[in-house]
Structures are given as C-alpha cells and as structure tokens.
Computed example of a mutant assay.
Amino acid sequence: MKTNKTTWRSRVASAVVIAVALIMALSIVTLGSSPAKKIRVGIAQIAEHPALDAARKGFIDGLTAAGYVEGKDIVYDVKNAQGDMSLAQTIAQKFVNDKVDLILAIATPTAQAAASATDKIPILITAVTDPVAAGLVKSIERPGTNVTGTSDLNPVAEQMELLLEIVPKVKRVGIVYNAGEVNSVVQVEMAEKSAKKLGLTIVKASASNTSGVFEAAQSLVGRVDAIYVPTDNTVVAALESVVNVAEKRKIPVIAGEENSVERGCIATLGIDYYRLGRQTAKMAVEVLKGKNPAEMPVQYQKEMRLVVNLKAAQAMGVTVPQSVIKRADRVIE
C-alpha cells in the first residue's frame, strides 16, 4: 500500500510540475506575442471643403499603401476646427496632451496652432502656401524646426495669364480673400505683382469668415471684369456664394485649385490636393522611421493640371477658347 501511495503522490507531483511549466510557457508566449504599439496620428484640419478633404484622404491612403493599416498599425484622431482659430489651438493642445506620435496639420492656421503647441512632436504640414511667411520653418531647404511637409503654392502668375487667355478684355480683377490668412495674403501679393506686368488692376474684397463671403463678392459687382479665388480656406468653404453672384452678374471666375472648378468656377491651372496628401504621406513614413523633420526640405508639387468647366463658363456668359480646351487635362461639361 505504501508503494501505491508513493507512486500516486509522485504522479500528482509530476502533474503539478508539468502544469506549472505549461502555465509559465504560455505566459512567456503571451508576453512575447503581445501586439506592437499602434502609431497615433493627430490630424487637424482648419475647415471642411473638398480640397482639404482630398489632401487628408491622400495622406491616409498614402500611409495605408506604405503598410500602415488603420486600426492595426496606426490610429488617426481627425479633428476639424470649422474655421475657428481658437478651436484649432484647442485641438493642437489636445494632441500634445494625448502624446500622439505625429501631427498632420492641414492648412496654414492649423499648422500655426500645432507649431505653437509643441516643438517636440513631429509635425507634417500640407496645403500650406508659404511655410516661411507663416513662421513654421526657418527655410524651405532646411526647416530647422519640428515642422516639414508640402506646400500648395499656386502658379498665380500663370493663373492670371490663363484668365486673360479665356477673357482677353479683362482689365480689373477682383480677389475675394480672408486678410487674416497668411496663405491668402501671400497669394494676393503674388497676384498684384503679376497683374502689373499684364496690365491688370487688382481690386480686393476681404471676408473674415464664411458668412461674409457673399457680401465681399457682392461688393465687387460693377467694379471688376472678373474674379480670382485663391486657395483661401474661408472663401473656398463658402465658394457657392461667390459663384452665385458671378453667375447672376455674368462675371467670370478663375480659381486657385481644381475642386473649386468642380464647384462652379470656370478654370484653373493648379495642383491636385489628393496627390499632395500622398506626397506628404511619403514624408511622414520617413519621419516615422526616424528621419529628423528639421533636416527635410519642404516639398512642392511640380506637375500642374489645367481644368476647365464649360458648364460654369456658359453660366457666366463666357466662351472658352478651343486652344484652352485642347490642352486641358480635364474638361467638365
């Protein structure tokens, strides 16, 4: 009987040892296979309109294509400031408090808010016209800060030339813009400079918010022969107000970017914001892999697209020359 009891106890002890060993092994395996930390990206957008939305989508699609799958490898916290600078600052501070790994700032105001909130977290910018004038970087070639990315600087001079090609009799050009947006001020100055060379006179009308865009556009009636809409976040967010005035008064409108042409302007020679977003994503991948934003030059989009909206031209009483239509990358009918 003693022998049987000893054997039984020995078997129990062995079983206990094996069980403990299995538990320890499983614990080690579990610890070793714990999921990697997800990269957290805060995305701040100044306002909701097609161009900026396209840049955001291009950025996310670009990171996905690079292997950063949303929900698995990376998570996005997307915030929209709705044109409110104080809200943009609150959003930026939230990202800092949340200790995100990277910030994407879409448009100049949100980029300025993010840069003011942190000099530690890497900031990628896009749809920012002049990062130097906005105080975001020390130079285009060598930012020298935690900020880099892509600029949406438009070929304003070429756009003025396009306006003259479409409407040769134009003498006075109205510009609706927000004087509080650095990016818009830069574009207006560029337009004024090129206008002098082309024999044109610029007439400015400012709107500090979207509700003032209609009044600004209306103030140009009888004073201008055409209207130019730069890539101004405030005006583009309320673009229909400008288009309505222009159609009613038969004033041709040339835009700074493609989405504005889709929404009723006659034409543009400009950038593709979706592609700009994807270009920014490539830079973000480099930063996530350890590259220093301070040493990464701000990039521009080299290829411009000529887009024409014949339906809009008809609504504004304009016949677009065949020379323009034939070389257009896209014609909206």
Rank of each mutant, 00 (worst) to 15 (best):
V213L: 05
T201N: 06
A81T: 05
G199Q: 11
G32K: 15
I325H: 10
V235L: 15
F59C: 07
S14L: 15
L164W: 00
D152K: 02
K120G: 01
L136M: 08
A111C: 09
V245N: 09
Q314E: 14
A255R: 00
T210R: 05
E247L: 02
K169H: 08
P131E: 08
Q301C: 03
N183C: 06
L200E: 14
Y76K: 13
W8R: 10
K171R: 15
H49W: 03
T145P: 06
G62P: 04
I175N: 10
N183I: 01
H49K: 03
K94I: 01
A284Y: 14
T201F: 02
I251F: 08
Y68P: 02
S260W: 04
N259V: 00
V298R: 10
K197R: 07
T268E: 14
A133Q: 13
A237T: 14
S116M: 07
L288I: 01
T108M: 11
T210V: 10
Q159F: 01
A111M: 09
I254W: 09
S151G: 06
K57V: 01
A127S: 14
F214C: 00
I18W: 04
D84N: 13
Q299R: 09
A117N: 08
E158F: 00
E189L: 12
T129R: 04
D84I: 07
L63C: 10
V242G: 10
N259M: 13
